[in-house]
């Protein structure tokens, strides 16, 4: 692997890995809290938020995108609560209605607005543009030490790195309260932990991960990474710490394997075009989850009645 790899594959793979990890980390806790659907909802709701933010500001800069996505998430939460209370239906159904409707609204907005001069369209929203995040100035591994070449790194890479690092640090710092309030909310409240605040912070963290990753890799990877690596990891271990480490490892594996398979898999099979890296990464994570369901050592525990 030489200059070609550094120029065309290194940065997309790194961005894919960082996006996968940033989503998988909060995904572990969302799954254990039976809130996996929230990750799905957030990644859908991000689209209309980003489109509206673009229409208002005319740029695709990170801060307006984040604010737009955050505002959309807020609107979604209010709508979900309103539908749940006024309609008297269960939260999962309310969530499903709201996020698909908002996502559809985002698609319509996107089609009707003039986004031709920026890279913002439905395909991008779903698949991202991972393959285009290349590092043209790189001339080989030595460029990693060359400040001039480093300055032309795709901005998605440092942005995603900062977000992934931030989420990792937050997970480490708040490990005990997160674990405690996820396992036993009543007890956590009784010893004075701010349980509602912890739950809200977790959702906000997931939103930040979704927005940052959405821009680089699209919503398909985001949805898959919130659920597949943590769910597969749960089947491989009975310890929360090991589960989180496994989810990081499986997220990385999905990103690398998915990128390579998307780029070279079809060629190996005799086709002439490569396929979408985002789609392949998500597919690989799904296959890993499927394998874990079949061979995971702790698969029998899932769904077993208490005391059985």
């Amino acid at each position: 692997m030489g200059a070609d790899f550094v120029q065309f594959s290194l940065t997309p793979i790194l961005i894919g890995i960082l996006a996968a990890i940033a989503c998988a980390l909060p995904g572990n806790f969302l799954i254990l809290r039976r809130q996996a659907l929230i990750g799905d909802a957030i990644s859908h709701v991000v689209l209309p938020g980003i489109v509206v933010a673009f229409l208002v500001t005319g740029t695709v800069a990170a801060i307006p995108m984040l604010l737009g996505a955050g505002a959309a998430a807020l609107v979604a939460v209010v709508l979900i609560e309103a539908i749940r209370r006024l309609g008297g239906i269960e939260p999962g159904a309310a969530m499903g209605v709201v996020f698909t409707a908002l996502f559809a609204g985002g698609v319509l907005l996107l089609e009707q607005s003039d986004t031709s001069r920026v890279h913002l369209d439905v395909e991008h929203a779903l698949m991202g543009n991972l393959e285009t995040l290349i590092w043209l100035r790189a001339e080989g591994w030595g460029s990693l030490l060359d400040p001039v070449a480093l300055a032309s790194l795709p901005p998605e890479l440092p942005r995603m790195a900062v977000v992934a690092a931030l989420i990792a640090v937050l997970t480490l710092i708040f490990w005990r309260p997160l674990k405690l309030s996820t396992f036993d909310e009543g007890f956590a409240r009784a010893i004075g932990l701010p349980v509602s605040l912890i739950g809200l912070a977790l959702v906000i963290t997931a939103t930040v991960a979704a927005v940052a990753a959405f821009d680089a890799v699209g919503s398909i990877i985001v949805i898959a990474m919130f659920i597949c690596p943590p769910a597969a990891a749960r089947l491989l271990t009975n310890s929360l710490a090991a589960q989180v480490w496994w989810s990081v490892a499986l997220a990385m594996l999905s990103a690398i394997l998915g990128y390579v398979l998307a780029g070279y898999g079809p060629l190996w099979l005799g086709f002439s075009n490569s396929v979408s890296a985002a789609g392949m990464i998500a597919t690989v994570s799904g296959v890993i989850l499927g394998l874990a369901c079949v061979v995971g050592p702790y698969r029998r525990r899932v769904g077993v009645a208490v005391g059985a």
Binding site: K179, F183, E185
Partner: peptide, 11 residues
């Protein structure tokens, strides 16, 4: 006792 998920990954 029934208020928590005993399948939670912990000891």
């Amino acid at each position: 006792r029934a208020s928590v998920d005993w399948d939670f990954p912990t000891t």
